[in-house]
Structures are given as structure tokens and as C-alpha cells.
Write a protein that binds this DNA or RNA. Structure first.
Lengths: 136, 136
DNA sequence: GGAACGATTGAATGAGTGTTCATCTTTTCA
DNA sequence: TGAAAAGATGAACACTCATTCAATCGTTCC
């Protein structure tokens, strides 16, 4: 079967009929995460997959609490851009905010994300990480 | 200082002059990850921030080794789309491939990514995860 | 040799998104 | 009361990127 087709979902029948290795694939049917769960996982990682948000989260993991003004100055970005990203992080319950007068202080709300970010940073630092050039 | 400005990099002078809380910000200058490193971290997470790649990586973490044909059937996607994503993962040294005749077998190459993916999956499963609705 | 097949690749399309600019809200202070 | 500041927000723009479609490469089998 070449290139593209209708691409229906996997069934045991289709597996037996079309798989190159039915014995390998059969036990996997129904065990691989579905599209909805994959969307949630991807959204989780997408929060960390932007350089600006990564720097914001790193700064907040170092400082415990920062206002938008100081955060923007520290990262060398506009307050507008910072506010937009902080809003996104806030809607995903990754940061919390505390208003004092006209100043708004942000802090990390999610220890899970803190942990995941630390993992990603360690990973990025360990490898030589040369995204280009062939391997095989 | 309102909204947007030239947004130069942070310096001790600018911190003292313009920060709302210089004492908070001063010790952070130079400690927050820079733009290049943030790019690398973001790229690392971006690999996992796509539902299709997430499902591919999950399938490979369950199966140890799969050919493109079976993988596409198992995930209900076209072989072309699978091949495109596998190429991206390969260039980032996340998967390895092994050619046998005209069949190409892919497997996870990076235990780090396997670990990070497991974390993200756990995170996405634990929380109620309602990305919408206000908090504050 | 030629047909069938697994896999790859390039161009094109469409959706998603990060930043900028302008505007607006809220609070503070003179 | 009015101006200035901190922050938020919406529209617009540019850019990235995942998928599709079509074509191609390399291998196997008749």
C-alpha cells in the first residue's frame, strides 16, 4: 500500500490484512494514546516550546515572584509581549498573579511544569544538540 | 514606563534606574538563561509539542521498533505524514532508523526524551486540565 | 526487464501563533 | 480633578509548521 489513502483508524482486521508485522502491531492496538490525549500532552509541552515563555518561567523559577515591569526589563522585552505570554501561562494555570495597587506580581503556580522545565534545560545543556546534519 | 519601548538588554544601571524592585531584580541579571539557550530548550520541547509526534513517540516507546507502514496504520495516518515527522525526529537524533530491504524500522534513540515524554503524559493525565476559564 | 511496494521528498495550502502597535482600564499621586 | 504609570487587550502582520498531493527513489519478486 503506497503513500496516502483514506487513513481510517486501526482495527484488528486491518492489522491482520495490511500490517507487515501483525504480531508486532496487534498488541499495540488500543494501547497507544488517542488523539485527544495526545492533544493534551502536546499542549502541555507547547507551553514550554517558546523561547520567551521558557525565559519567563526560568526567571520566575529563580525569583519566586516578579512584576510585569521588572520581568520585561530583566528579559529585555516589551511589557506588552510579556503580558501576552503571561496571560497564556495564566490561562493554563502555570502561573498565578497577585495584584497590589496597579502592580501585578506573577509567580509559578505549577511545580510540575517547574520540574519539566528543569529536565528540558538539563537535556538541552547535556547534548551537543546539532539539529542539522544527517545521521543514517 | 508604559507599554513598549526600545527594549534593550538588562544592565545594572537600567535596573537601578527603572526597576520597581531593584533589590529583587539585581541578583537575577546574568543568571536567567539567554536567548540562544532558550531557543535550544524551546526546540527540545517543540519536538514533543505536536500530537502526531507525541503519538509516534508513544508508540515507539511501547513497541521498541516499528516500520513506517505499520506505524502509519497503527496511528491512522498517511505514510507521508508519518515519514515527514519521522524525518524531523531523526534530524534531532530522537529516533534512529534501520533499513532492511525496502522496509525502514524506526526506534527511539533518546532515553532523555522518553523520560520527558513520560513526565508530560503523567502531568496531562493528573490535572483536570481546563485551559480555558479565568483564575484570578 | 518491468511491475508492485515501502519509503522519501518537494511544493502548496491552510491553520496556528508570537510580536508589534494602538488603545483602553485601573490605580496612584500631585 | 487630571496626568502619569502599570498592565491588559484587540487587531494586524509575519512567520512557522503540519498535512496533503504528486512525483520519485530504491528494492523485491515475477
Amino acid at each position: 500500500m503506497n503513500t496516502h489513502s483514506i487513513v481510517p483508524g486501526p482495527t484488528l482486521d486491518r492489522c491482520e490484512a495490511e500490517c507487515l508485522h501483525p504480531a508486532q502491531v496487534r498488541p499495540l492496538i488500543g494501547r497507544v494514546i488517542g488523539r485527544e490525549e495526545a492533544d493534551r500532552v502536546a499542549s502541555t509541552f507547547a507551553l514550554l516550546a517558546d523561547p520567551t515563555r521558557a525565559r519567563i518561567l526560568h526567571a520566575l523559577s529563580l525569583a519566586e515572584e516578579l512584576c510585569v515591569c521588572d520581568l520585561a526589563l530583566l528579559l529585555g522585552m516589551s511589557e506588552s509581549a510579556a503580558s501576552h505570554q503571561l496571560r497564556l501561562l495564566r490561562l493554563n494555570r502555570t502561573v498565578d498573579r497577585r495584584k497590589v495597587g496597579r502592580v501585578v506580581y506573577y509567580r509559578l503556580a505549577d511545580q510540575h511544569v517547574r520540574h519539566m522545565f528543569a529536565d528540558g534545560l538539563r537535556h538541552a545543556r547535556e547534548e551537543g544538540h546539532t539539529p542539522a546534519s544527517e545521521a543514517s
